[in-house]
Each structure stands twice: as structure tokens, then as C-alpha cells.
Design a protein around this nucleic acid. Structure first.
Length: 357
DNA sequence: AAATAAAACAACCGCAGGCTT
DNA sequence: AAAGCCTGCGGTTGTTTTATT
């Protein structure tokens, strides 16, 4: 666990934190001779370090043009913007922020900005409102923010949380619909297609959402298509299933008998570690029964824990085939009971891409 | 005040690609 | 063309600092 600050066993060079003396030697050398061959510098400069370590120390710390200190609001926004276009291309991002190194930006992203976006319900990978699985990460943060995990939970927090979850689920659902309409491969998800024929979404024409989809694609400069950014077509029943787990289950008769089987199967089939994005999600999603006395929260929710850390593949392939579309839809419509601030029209309006040209 | 946990930062590692011989 | 060297990049780990209990 402890990284040895001493000599490397193979090369005999020192590792670990640099001393002021070593820094001085390196700076003196580079100022005198410039950046030459990093492999030769340590020898000539009298440093017992590998060239790689010298280069890193210089570029990330000793370079005179390095700007240290807190990131400004402008820098933050720029990093977020560039990351949405370039992804984890830290060196490319760093070229747009004079004085900041790729390492510094990378660290700042991982420790600050990523969490900030998650807290806002934005997927830090896609820079979109959290999608199904990532939504759950957001949920985890909502739980923390609302203090729902602790013993001192309050009823207000439970209400707020459920409204937030309902709101995010709506966003997710509309995204799924757009994807169905724009998907050029595979078999369209019939559940979602049916959704268009029923109120309240029946009030919208598929062309409306197609238009929205184009807006989104345009906002990304065409570099990222919706199909690529959301590779899976979620089954409507999965959303409905999730509603059950957060306590939106109307009656015991409408429970999902295949829950246990589905979750068990998914656990058994999970072979890889969860992705970084969802690794910090608590292992179960249910709101503890003790934390809420909301009438819509059934006591059974406590026993219906679904593992949120399962991979997206597993989640989507383990569809709950036995559910009827009507049952799923009933559950989804209950979102309106909780998310009173936003109707479906507001959700679709809200989906408009802010940076669209 | 001490112990523990979480956050922040610095540095290392492995890999890929370009260049030289 | 192939091999070896060098550099740069992104992910990960380890250490230090700060906050919380």
C-alpha cells in the first residue's frame, strides 16, 4: 500500500516526492541547457531520478509559466465545455488553459467538477441529464444531500427526493423516446413506441422529438450522435421497475414476481467491476422504510432492493418480460403525482440543448 | 485532543506512437 | 523493414492535508 519513497529495485533511481534540492538542480539545468533529452538530463544534472520523473516534475510543477492556485469560475466553465467536446483529452484541454497542466486539470476534474456535475444531475461522461444508470448515481448524491441515509431523516427530504427522482426519470424517458425515433439499427422498443400513442405524450408528434434530437446533435457539432451517446435502448419495464423500488408501487397485486429472479440473475452474470461512474453508488437503491412515511411509499420497498451497481448490459438484458405495458405505464404516470413542478411539456422543453446554434 | 474519514494533490505506471538507426 | 529509444498521454496509486466524529 505504501509507495516506497526510496530507491527503485530495478533501476536504482529515487522515487517519490521531490526535495527542494532536487528541484533546484533540475531547474538550474533546464534554465541553462533547455529541455533536451530527458533520459540524459538526470545524469548530467546529477539527479538520481529517471528521465520520465524529471520530465513530469518539470512540466507539472517547475515550469515557470505554470499558474497555480484555485481554478476560476471561467476556467471551470471552460474545462466543462471542452470536456463535453473532447472527453478525457486532458492534454488537448490543457492547451486551451494557459498555465494549467493536463495533470492539474485532470485532478481538478476528478475531485471537483465531476462531482459537481453529478450533483446537478448531469452525467459527467455524456454531459447530458443523467441517463438510467447514471441517474442512480445522482440519486445517491440526492440521498446524501437530503440526509436520507442517516438516522435523522426528515419527511420533507423524502418528499423532495421523490420529486427529484421523478423529474429525472421523466428526462430519462424522453431521452429514450428520442432514441427510439432516431435509432437506425436494431429493433425498436415497442413499449416506448406505444408510449407515443397514449396520453400525455400522445399530444406530441414524433416529428417534435426528432426536431429536438437534431437540435441536440447540432449542439454537439455533429460529432456525437444520439445513438452513439446512448448505446442502449432501455426497456420501459426497467423504468417502471425502478419506480417500484423507490416506492411507487400502487398495490401488492401489481408487484413484479420476477424481481428476485431478475436481480439474482443479474448478480450472477456480473463479472466485471462497476464502472467508475457508478462505483460510488450505495449498494441498494431503496429508500429505507423508516425514512419516509409518504403514502406512496410502500413498506415492501424495503425488501425490493435492486442492485444499482449492475452493469448496463445486465440491466437491460434482464428485462422483465412478464410485465404488461399497462402496468408499466400506470406506474410511470404516477410520476406526475410527485413531480408537480414539471409536466411532460416542461420536461421536453427543458431538454432543449442550451448551446444549440 | 485523538482517531478516522474524506478530499486534494503529486507522482508513478503502462501503453502507444513517432523518430532514428 | 525491424528494432530500439524517446516522448507524451491517460489512468491509477500513494501521500498529505483538512474535516468530522
Amino acid at each position: 500500500m505504501v509507495k516506497s519513497p526510496n530507491r527503485d529495485e530495478t533501476g536504482g533511481v529515487k522515487k517519490g516526492p521531490w526535495t527542494p534540492e532536487e528541484d533546484r538542480k533540475l531547474v538550474e539545468y533546464v534554465e541553462k541547457h533547455g529541455r533536451g533529452s530527458w533520459q540524459r538530463i538526470p545524469k548530467i544534472a546529477g539527479l538520481n531520478r529517471c528521465g520520465k520523473s524529471c520530465r513530469l516534475r518539470w512540466t507539472n510543477y517547475l515550469r515557470p509559466d505554470i499558474r497555480r492556485g484555485k481554478f476560476t469560475e471561467e476556467e471551470e466553465q471552460l474545462v466543462i465545455h471542452l470536456h463535453s467536446m473532447l472527453g478525457n483529452k486532458w492534454s488537448s484541454i490543457a492547451t486551451k488553459l494557459p498555465g494549467r497542466t493536463d495533470n492539474e486539470i485532470k485532478n481538478y476534474w476528478n475531485t471537483h467538477l465531476r462531482k459537481k456535475l453529478i450533483r446537478m444531475g448531469i452525467d459527467p461522461v455524456t454531459h447530458r441529464p443523467a441517463t438510467n444508470l447514471n441517474l442512480l448515481t445522482g440519486l445517491s448524491n440526492l440521498l446524501s444531500a437530503g440526509g436520507l441515509g442517516g438516522p435523522a431523516s426528515h419527511l420533507d427530504n423524502a418528499f423532495k427526493l421523490q420529486a427529484d427522482v421523478a423529474h429525472l426519470l421523466k428526462l430519462q424517458l424522453v431521452q429514450s423516446l428520442i432514441q427510439v425515433l432516431t435509432s437506425s439499427y436494431g429493433t425498436p422498443n415497442m413499449d416506448l413506441m406505444n408510449l407515443f400513442r397514449s396520453p400525455p405524450l400522445g399530444n406530441y408528434q414524433p416529428s417534435d422529438l426528432l426536431q429536438l434530437s437534431r437540435q441536440i446533435d447540432g449542439g454537439l457539432g455533429g460529432s456525437l450522435s444520439l445513438q452513439n451517446s446512448i448505446p442502449m435502448i432501455p426497456n420501459l419495464s426497467i423504468l417502471s421497475h425502478y419506480l417500484n423500488n423507490i416506492g411507487l408501487q400502487p398495490t401488492p397485486e401489481r408487484s413484479f414476481p420476477s424481481d428476485a429472479a431478475a436481480v439474482t440473475a443479474s448478480d450472477a452474470s456480473r463479472t466485471e467491476e462497476p464502472s467508475a461512474d457508478i462505483s460510488n453508488v450505495s449498494s441498494t437503491s431503496s429508500i429505507p422504510a423508516s425514512s419516509s412515511t409518504h403514502p406512496l411509499v410502500s413498506a415492501s420497498s424495503e425488501t425490493k432492493n435492486i442492485d444499482l451497481v449492475q452493469s448496463s448490459d445486465t440491466l437491460y438484458t434482464n428485462t422483465l418480460a412478464s410485465e404488461s405495458f399497462e402496468t408499466c405505464w400506470d406506474n410511470l404516470m404516477k410520476l406526475d403525482n410527485l413531480d408537480s413542478h414539471f409536466g411532460w411539456k416542461d420536461i421536453i422543453d427543458q431538454m432543449s440543448w442550451p448551446d444549440a446554434p
